[in-house]
Design a binder for these strands. Structure first.
Lengths: 223, 223
DNA sequence: CGGGTGTTTGAAAGGCATCAAAAAGCGTGG
DNA sequence: CCACGCTTTTTGATGCCTTTCAAACACCCG
């Protein structure tokens, strides 16, 4: 996947700058070299629904058809490589192997979307937030030493719009998790996950991903 | 798409019967000849999250990788045709055109999932329910005469589990919509959408699908 | 016609949103 | 390097919407 983008020029975007907008012709796909993006749609009444975040090394713009279905905006300063869809199509016609690689990326997005559906449809505020933290930790490929420290460059408002909550509720939940000793807050954008197993439990554990730190197997059945 | 399944034997399932289960090896894809299915996952604590419904003519099991990611269960008596993924792969290797057809189906599922995310994350109970009704109407390819009558074979509990609400809330919202004259209830499984434009308005109108009955264009901007 | 399941309605409780204000970060300029 | 002012975050008080618990009702099938 990396190899697709080698030699492509690296564009730069300042924090808050848009990379593309919902409805634009989807001419390119992107790979993030460095930084963090938020992907969102604005509803007619002005509400903002954040569909996801993308970090260094991740791909962007694959699961669209003719137009981008959300706006992509830099959370931090971002550097990314661009590849035209025409070029991509040409390459995938040549290299058979590429087809299944791309399809896998698309399936990954479906998995994430379905996960998101369950989080929004079934979980309460505390559970949603815990799930967000745990999956952020998993995503950064966090070193498996506990406690795990994660960097969250986005604002609380971003998190709220992603989780379908208000900013106040997100703050309150984080404060409560801190009071309960599950996490520690270090400034605005760094959170230490002190008791990962408790967080995973809160999150519902409906994940099909492999556990972050499989140190012991809980004995669920007597004998 | 239809042609893929011609000649395949048609399996029958009684109402309530399972077609496949979450975690099963995803050996086949299906096309529904007749009937309605619900697709769901059960969370560790027993909650049921309905990911969607499938009706006559629709396809099933495409957007999975090695195992099915949800359980499929007959809501009504169902007849469906089955096609092994091995066979499908072989066919798509031969017929180049098939590739993009299948990819389109996958993209359709992503679109639906993202829609669902917005509904669950941003809309209130009344808005969610209105959206469900409107999109059900659109799906049945309803005749564009108003009022539109839709058949909803699933139970209220199914609808609740799909919309992330309780059965009581779904009932109350339907009753309110009825009181307000937006819909009429004919028995348990038939609903008449009396004032479609009002319902669409309630639903948020964030849909990118074409309008159901474009009879007039609302003048949004003065002059 | 009667039983059972599914649906509807009511009353009370709980959780999240809203409104408001204080506190904490953070960049800027003195 | 510190002080200032702005933005972001946090905390508090109140209200609304949805859930929960409970009971009546309707529909469907035998």
């Amino acid at each position: 996947m990396e190899q697709l983008f080698v030699g492509q020029p690296a564009d730069k975007f300042a924090a808050g700058e848009g990379v593309f907008w919902e409805g634009d012709t989807a001419s390119d796909i992107f790979q993030i070299v460095e930084g963090c993006l938020r992907l969102y749609r604005i509803l007619p009444d002005g509400r903002r629904a954040i569909m996801g975040f993308r970090f260094s090394g991740e791909t962007l713009g694959l699961s669209c058809e003719d137009t981008y279905c959300y706006t992509a905006e830099a959370v931090t300063p971002v550097r990314l490589r661009r590849l035209s869809r025409a070029r991509l199509r040409a390459m995938s016609d040549e290299v058979r192997q590429l087809q299944s690689l791309l399809l896998e990326k698309v399936f990954e997005e479906i998995r994430d979307a379905r996960q998101h559906i369950i989080v929004l449809g079934q979980l309460g505020a505390e559970e949603r937030t815990a799930h967000f933290l745990v999956s952020a930790a998993r995503r950064t490929g966090a070193d498996r030493r506990r406690p795990v420290t994660i960097e969250l460059p986005m604002t609380r408002q971003d998190i709220a719009d992603y989780l379908g909550l208000t900013i106040e509720t997100v703050c309150r939940v984080l404060s409560k998790l801190k009071r309960d000793g599950l996490i520690a807050l270090e400034g605005r954008h760094r959170i230490v996950l002190l008791r990962m197993t408790d967080l995973q439990h809160l999150a519902g554990e409906f994940d099909d991903a492999e556990p972050l730190a499989p140190t012991w197997t809980p004995a669920k059945w007597p004998h």
